[in-house]
């Protein structure tokens, strides 16, 4: 059981732990915007850790796994931001308890500036 293997097992354990947390987060959170937080951050971290643990077990694959990690690091946040913006534009309201809506004022400002021009 080389050092790499032990390290790999730890990483895999932590990765799957954070995936479980993200699953729990999606269930627990009240509205869509907070759920996206849980769904994105924890799962990206979890997947990266699992990829790292795979690299520990199979060092030969590490370059492909690095590419895979970079790919996920970009797509996961990107897709959830697109999801959030689309649901906002479709008028999905967020609960009072989960924060202030700054985007509304920004859109108002942009709209006013357009009228002025």
């Amino acid at each position: 059981m080389g050092v790499l293997d032990i390290f790999g097992y730890i990483l895999a354990f932590m990765g799957s732990g954070s995936l479980i947390i993200s699953g729990l987060g999606i269930v627990r959170m009240p509205d869509i915007y907070t759920r996206i937080h849980a769904g994105t951050k924890a799962s990206t971290l979890g997947i990266l850790m699992i990829i790292a643990s795979a690299a520990c077990f199979e060092p030969a694959w590490s370059f492909k796994l690095l590419l895979l990690g970079a790919f996920i690091l970009i797509t996961n946040p990107l897709s959830s931001s697109a999801l959030a913006l689309a649901s906002y534009k479709q008028g999905v309201k967020h609960l009072e308890t989960s924060g202030v809506d700054e985007l509304a004022d920004k859109i108002k400002i942009k709209a006013d500036s357009k009228e002025k021009r």
């Binding site: 797509t75 697109a82 689309a86």
Partner: peptide, 11 residues
């Protein structure tokens, strides 16, 4: 969607 636009350029 501005973020998607930039991201898709890279992806």
């Amino acid at each position: 969607n501005f973020i998607l636009r930039i991201g898709s350029g890279f992806l």
